[in-house]
Write a protein that binds this DNA or RNA. Structure first.
Length: 739
DNA sequence: CCTGACGACTCAGAAATTTTCGA
DNA sequence: ATCGAAAATTTCTGAGTCGTCAG
């Protein structure tokens, strides 16, 4: 298949990135400037009434009910916990009452739990390594070992602490070694942190893998225009092929998609083709589509040997191109394959959907590696756009994509030091926030009363970010989908109710967030917040900014003043991790079975996903698999009955009796498990757990929980996750607290 | 100080692929 | 043990956040 770096010679046609307007027209028209510069496209005006159409996903449909059930269920489980944030239909109070509310979440948790009695502090030394450097402070210091490091130049470092091989004579009863096929693990977390700014001293790799070159369609596969077969030039045919893959997809029902595609397609046509093909509706791509389907069928039904052969070939490529050497260690690369050409698929209502994403050639690619490394060889008769040696960045290669004009990077895999260290740092920052959250909350609550409007807006925005885990909300271009975050909320996105569903001061949110995922929520807010919101909305039009004196820079500047390194997103991380810990404390059945514990874990995880509004389309198979489960459960119930009956017939104490009762226990256990699965599944059908697990939950919380409750880590983290969080697995003991 | 351009990195859900499940 | 379906995992690449620099 993809012949690694095989590119046809034509350097010709990849030249221009036609449309890449680099200049963004940011504009957030604050009410006061509104009239002034209208030259730039005003998105708000134009988009104002548009929001709310559904985007591909579920988000569209009517209203609250959508995810309410699952959410309600999850929340219910959470009992009277404070996480009610996302509850929908019945208004849940965000704050139980002032007094309660004023206590930082962290302290609330203390009250209910007494685990914390486990004062830690007796962690093995190794576990208390200094946290990674905080953005800008060196922390050379203690620690002996070979430490020539620092500025010692590139040159493959003389293996610093090289991999501690778990030679496992394991005299120490300590934790089990992860052994397995794990080839040497670089325990970077046991090393001294590096100097700030410098990301590596030595970097060598083979360059990215390019997309396989285009293969022409067989003669027998026809494209038809207006019923007649039209032979397309190679370029036009390739692009027609891209579209043909979509013809059964919802995308092709969207006008914008078709319009953008057709425009770009025509650009690839010869003059003759342009003349003939003038109406997309008269184009018939069905044969091409069939052809591709056939091809993929063929691939699926290949013989075992062929598949194996292919697999090996892939592995060979991954081995050669998927790995780099960084400071003396082999590290996996995340995306070493360059994105193949195709049609741009935006999310939601993207103005550029359907545009042609061009093929990338080596001449488009900048390579980054160290000066003393072997520079990767470009594919035959090609050359790189540039080779540079910048060790203040982490990417190995980059190119500019033509649709949006953004730079795309080749970077390392999450298991790498570069990514892992950063991740660790992120959670440490969130824990730091945990220590100051009380003060910060006090601070913004005071600001509710400020005389300065911008301070009040800042405070209310921060309140939302903290309580609802909203994203910061940068301004966006009008050539992107119209989505918002906290700072970019518009008046039309919220509604105020002095009284609703028996609650006072209710705010409903309804907007499209990142990836055009709908955020719908109804919450009770503090009186002062409510009043402020009313004030902010006064005499504004629906399309005006709610926080017209605020943007993310201002907000983050303020946060940075409160706590160095603090930004809006840290709140999301903090609240997510904090919620997980709190929920685990709350929900874990200490004497339950492993299955029950895992269910509790998933519920805790789900509470976080709900908080962060991580959604997914309900799997199409959901309905059916629920039915299957119901059937199975019924069967199992019958089984239990049967076994019980049989048991009765046996004399107590007899061997048979013992056996039977063991069987009964087994069967009951199975039934229980099935029922749990069912609940779990139904509650989670439209909630995506993955994102929070991967990006928001301090892995040490989960690991500590596993260790404490004797749950195998595999129940919670699959192989990939375990690899990504190896640092945490190594570091956290059962007493770890995020707080 | 603010504003825009832009660079680099994190985080997102869908789709593709692989593995597991369960008649 | 087998085979198709379902579940789990992996890949893919788009969409955010946030910092910096120049004017």
């Amino acid at each position: 298949m993809e012949v690694a770096q095989n590119i046809e010679n034509g350097t010709s046609n990849h030249s221009n990135h036609n449309s890449s307007h680099k200049h963004k027209h940011k504009h957030k028209h604050k009410s006061d400037k509104k009239s002034s510069h209208h030259s730039k496209h005003k998105k708000r005006d134009k988009d104002r009434d548009r929001h709310r159409e559904s985007s591909s996903k579920s988000n569209g449909d009517s209203g609250s009910p959508r995810k309410s059930e699952a959410v309600a269920a999850a929340v219910e489980v959470a009992a009277e916990v404070k996480i009610e944030r996302r509850s929908l239909s019945p208004v849940k109070k965000m704050e139980v009452d002032d007094s309660e509310d004023d206590r930082p979440l962290s302290s609330r948790i203390q009250v209910k739990k007494n685990y914390d009695s486990d004062s830690e502090d007796d962690k093995p030394l190794i576990h208390r390594k200094p946290p990674p450097p905080t953005t800008s402070q060196k922390r050379k210091s203690n620690h002996s070992s070979d430490d020539s490091d620092s500025d010692s130049k590139p040159l493959r470092k003389k293996s610093k602490k090289q991999v501690k091989k778990p030679t496992s004579q394991s005299p120490s009863p300590k934790k089990k070694k992860p052994k397995k096929e794990e080839e040497e693990v670089w325990k970077w977390w046991e090393e001294e942190p590096r100097d700030d700014g410098v990301k590596w001293n030595f970097l060598e790799h083979k360059g990215p893998v390019f997309a396989a070159k285009y293969e022409k369609l067989p003669k027998s596969v026809h494209f038809k225009y207006d019923g007649k077969v039209v032979k397309l030039s190679e370029d036009a045919e390739e692009v027609a092929g891209f579209y043909s893959r979509f013809i059964e997809h919802e995308y092709t029902t969207k006008e914008k998609f078709n319009e953008n595609f057709f425009k770009d397609w025509r650009r690839t046509m010869t003059a003759d083709e342009k003349k003939t093909i003038t109406d997309l509706r008269k184009c018939d791509f069905r044969e091409i589509n069939e052809y591709f389907k056939l091809k993929s069928e063929e691939r699926k039904s290949m013989s075992k040997e062929e598949k194996l052969c292919q697999k090996e070939e892939n592995e060979r490529i991954a081995e050669e191109f998927g790995i780099c050497v960084l400071d003396g260690h082999k590290e996996k690369i995340g995306n070493f394959r360059i994105e193949p050409p195709g049609l741009f698929r935006g999310r939601g209502d993207h103005p550029k959907m359907g545009m042609l994403k061009k093929r990338i050639f080596p001449e488009d690619v900048i390579i980054n590696c160290s000066k003393d490394a072997v520079v990767p060889k470009p594919p035959e008769s090609h050359r790189w756009k540039e080779v540079r040696h910048d060790n203040t960045v982490t990417w190995l290669a980059c190119w500019i994509e033509n649709v949006q004009g953004q730079t795309k990077y080749v970077m390392l895999n999450p298991t790498s030091r570069l990514k892992g260290e950063k991740d660790w740092l992120k959670y440490e920052k969130a824990r730091e926030l945990a220590k100051h959250i009380h003060k910060i909350r006090e601070n913004y609550k005071n600001d509710f009363k400020s005389k300065e409007m911008r301070v009040r807006q800042r405070a209310v925005a921060l309140y939302f970010i903290d309580k609802l885990a909203l994203r910061a909300g940068n301004e966006k271009d009008e050539d992107q989908a119209d989505t918002v975050g906290c700072c970019s909320l518009r008046v039309e996105h919220i509604e105020l109710f002095d009284e609703k569903d028996g609650q006072e001061s209710v705010v409903t949110f309804d907007f499209l967030g990142k990836d055009s995922i709908r955020y719908f929520n109804q919450v009770t807010v503090e009186k002062r917040v409510f009043k402020n919101l009313k004030l902010f909305m006064e005499s504004k039009k629906p399309g005006d900014d709610l926080f017209d004196r605020l943007n993310t820079q201002i907000l983050n500047k303020h946060l940075n003043d409160l706590l160095s390194g603090l930004t809006a997103k840290v709140f999301r991380t903090y609240n997510a991790s904090h919620t997980l810990q709190e929920q685990l404390d709350e929900l874990t059945p200490v004497n339950g079975s492993v299955n029950e514990k895992v269910l509790a874990y998933n519920r805790a995880n789900r509470a976080v996903a709900v908080l962060c509004n991580h959604q997914r389309a309900v799997p199409k198979s959901h309905e059916k698999s629920m039915e299957n489960l119901v059937t199975k459960i019924q069967q199992k119930k019958d089984d239990v009955k049967k076994v019980k009956k049989e048991l009765k017939g046996l004399s107590r104490g007899s061997k048979d009796h013992e056996k039977k009762s063991a069987q009964l226990r087994r069967t009951e256990e199975q039934l229980k498990k099935l029922e749990m699965t069912k609940t779990d599944k139904d509650e989670g059908k439209e909630i995506a757990l993955g994102t929070s697990k991967l990006n928001y939950l301090d892995p040490r919380i989960s690991i500590a929980w596993c260790k404490k409750h004797d749950v195998p880590i595999e129940k919670v983290y699959n192989k990939t996750l375990r690899a990504k969080f190896r640092w945490a697995i190594d570091m956290a003991d059962k007493k770890y607290r995020f707080d």
